[in-house]
């Protein structure tokens, strides 16, 4: 048993490294985009797509599938990399990111890309969308689950709290939100720009079950997701403590790398660092 878990974690770590390499290559090729918040959420998204979510890449609209909504839509490169690695579309297409005519828009477009569940990018909207999908699941007595990834800056949007209130009111226990708590937003530290802290207390007072996790530790993340699936009568939240730019030393915890693509040379340096990880 323990060996199997070790094997799974090794597999997920390798996938995570692979997604990080895709993100760097895609952004360098595109010449623009958001590396910091894509890299911080790599383990969260890897755990979901390569272990937790029940999906069928050959049938992206399977009605019973689990749903993942990337509310922080600017982490699109991460989502695209996961979907391509999962087999929703060819990996080669990743390098068309942000180019004219590409399906891979700067922010996800559900009508263009198989596997993308919601068109996001205008921050604060994904939790409501996830709630709607979760309520439909309740009406239809389906047992799919809905996961929504929020940014820690994003939760400054009032709509997030409207959705938080409604999800608890409607006892949406098939809904799990994850906050990518990397502590940084475009203008600086989240706590300095407009503090959303304390996170756990706020969400608990809104009627959610809350658990914290190291957002880069697969063992903890998997435990958190299996806990979330067991929560009954309430929506659940995983606060994932992460490092913005994680895995690329010169991007880690550097606010400037929120929305700037690496040059070819910087990309080489990043890829070299990722290979030795």
């Amino acid at each position: 048993m323990n060996q199997e878990v070790e094997k799974l974690i090794k597999y997920l770590e390798e996938k995570a490294r692979c997604l990080r390499c895709h993100i760097i290559r895609m952004l360098a090729e595109a010449g623009s985009g958001h590396p910091g918040g894509s890299l911080s959420a790599v383990e969260i998204v890897t755990a979901l797509y390569f272990h937790v979510l029940r999906l069928d890449p050959r049938n992206p609209s399977w009605p019973d599938r689990d749903r993942f909504v990337l509310s922080k839509g600017h982490a699109a490169p991460l989502l695209y990399a996961a979907l391509a690695e999962k087999g929703f579309f060819p990996v080669e297409e990743l390098l068309t990111l942000r180019k004219l005519g590409s399906r891979l828009q700067g922010h996800p477009d559900l009508r263009k890309v198989p596997g993308v569940e919601a068109s996001t990018g205008s921050l604060g909207q994904g939790l409501s969308i996830g709630l709607g999908i979760a309520l439909a699941g309740k009406i239809d007595r389906k047992n799919y689950r809905v996961y929504v990834l929020l940014g820690d800056g994003e939760i400054q949007e009032g709509q997030v709290w409207e959705a938080a209130m409604a999800a608890a009111h409607y006892r949406a226990d098939n809904l799990t939100a994850i906050v990518d708590y990397n502590g940084l937003q475009i203008d600086g530290p989240v706590a300095e720009v407009l503090s959303p802290l304390p996170l756990a207390e706020k969400w608990r007072s809104f009627g959610w079950e809350v658990r914290e996790s190291d957002g880069h530790n697969f063992r903890e993340l998997l435990e958190a997701f299996s806990w979330a699936a067991r929560v009954q009568g309430k929506p659940s939240l995983v606060i994932a403590r992460t490092v913005k730019g994680k895995g690329v030393p010169f991007m880690e915890n550097a606010v400037d790398w929120h929305g700037k693509a690496p040059t070819k040379e910087q990309a080489e340096e990043a890829l070299a660092a990722l290979k030795v990880l």
Binding site: A118, S128, I129, G132, I133
Partner: peptide, 8 residues
């Protein structure tokens, strides 16, 4: 937003 999710 919730309506959008229900439609999805």
């Amino acid at each position: 937003g919730t309506a959008a999710g229900l439609a999805l």
